[in-house]
Design a protein around this nucleic acid. Structure first.
Lengths: 132, 132
DNA sequence: CCGGATCCATAGTGATACTG
DNA sequence: CAGTATCACTATGGATCCGG
């Protein structure tokens, strides 16, 4: 069955580490783009709009290091490098989609909660102004 | 069916934003601890070992703002404050467990990939030293 | 007991210029 | 085309002191 209820320190550290990967600014977006098919460096750069060359490089290195993508160099002129998801990467993508669906489904409720919270904060600020 | 295949910009921004929450250093750990039962501030502080007072405060405020936890103040002496998961928070916890299970199941494979990658890097470094 | 305010070190990110 | 190198900036997180 599910090992979710086991909370030994080792598991916690592992999970936290993985969540950092998933939570970093670019990794998931890159993985999603690679989900359809392998892609070249500048192809990714165009698809993940807003990413800098440097961050794309760093993100891809990190994913490669963790065995989530493979990097294939064709020694042609001009050089060509393909990135593609490994089996591990594909399985991560599937899992992450669960979270993505949750986010989309609960987006409105979260935004409402934020507005409510921020409005309450403003009200407190006004009360403090009155007291002063 | 699943909306996973929809990739309009709005959804991407939303998903990225939620993923940042999940990926930040403490939010998930706090949510997990609140999964069993409501807890007090210093109770949480002991359970989430390593967290500073400041970060626990900030993390709880963020979760409260997004409607994931509620904050209940009992105006006693000394003061007592309880935090507890909302329905939204519970559903997030369930979803996140999927990722946690994935992390635990694939932990070894990721660690192996890392060792392989780092070893290859060291080898390249040696070759460069030889050339110099 | 709860948490706000401040100071500081560090890590993540971006812009730019340069290389094979 | 696919990177590397450098610099500057900002966000994040920890330590500490203070207050209701």
């Amino acid at each position: 069955m599910s090992p979710s209820h086991i909370h030994v320190p080792t598991d916690c550290r592992t999970v936290t580490e993985i969540l950092s990967r998933v939570g970093d600014k670019w990794s998931v977006q890159v993985v999603v783009q690679l989900g359809d098919s392998p892609k070249r460096f500048n192809e990714l750069r165009r698809l993940v709009s807003g990413i800098s060359q440097r961050m794309l490089t760093l993100t891809l290195r990190g994913l490669e290091r963790d065995g989530l993508v493979t990097r294939t160099v064709y020694p042609t002129i001009p050089p060509r490098v393909d990135y593609q998801l490994t089996g591990l990467g594909c399985s991560l993508l599937k899992t992450v989609r669960g979270l993505g669906d949750w986010a989309i489904q609960n987006r409105d409720e979260i935004l409402r909660a934020r507005r409510r919270f921020d409005a309450a904060g403003d009200e407190l600020d006004r009360q403090q102004s009155d007291a002063a």
